[in-house]
């Protein structure tokens, strides 16, 4: 995780770390971090407020569950507020939580895929039955 490197290894301030991350990648997350950086320059409440505002802006664009938004919001609340050791353990904990969410989404997708496949078969069978 590049942002983790910027924070823990390079020791860069959060705003600069977000900017670096957004410039080195071209993913939806890097787009989000770039936007948070932009907002932090104008928001009086600092990165914390900018992060929440970023979530509000991206909520309609990303097809993720409410639970994931809550997790992302928690990241914004703690990022930058503690020392390096605590940041490290927090990032590790959040990564595990996101992994669990990813696994759940994967299972959900597989289950739905199977359901749609079964629906397809059943639909096909129904058509065949009607034709008979």
């Amino acid at each position: 995780m590049e942002l983790e490197n910027e924070i823990l290894y390079m020791g860069r301030p959060l705003g600069y770390a977000l900017l670096q991350y957004s410039q080195n990648r071209n993913t939806p997350v890097s787009e989000f971090s770039g936007r948070v950086y932009e907002l932090s320059k104008t928001e009086d409440g600092g990165i914390d407020a900018a992060w929440q505002k970023g979530i509000d802006e991206f909520r309609n664009h990303w097809p993720v569950e409410q639970e994931d938004w809550i997790l992302l919001s928690q990241v914004g609340e703690v990022l930058g507020k503690t020392d390096r050791a605590n940041q490290s353990s927090f990032i590790k904990m959040m990564r595990e939580k996101f992994s669990v969410q990813e696994k759940k989404a994967e299972e959900d997708r597989a289950r739905k895929e199977k359901l749609y496949k079964n629906l397809g078969i059943l639909g096909g069978l129904a058509i065949v039955l009607v034709l008979i």
């Binding site: 301030p13 705003g15 770390a17 930058g80 507020k81 020392d83 390096r84």
Partner: peptide, 13 residues
């Protein structure tokens, strides 16, 4: 103080 630390206590600890 949080502003002085650029919202990053870890960078200024």
């Amino acid at each position: 103080v949080l502003r002085i630390c650029e919202n990053s206590f870890y960078a200024y600890q």
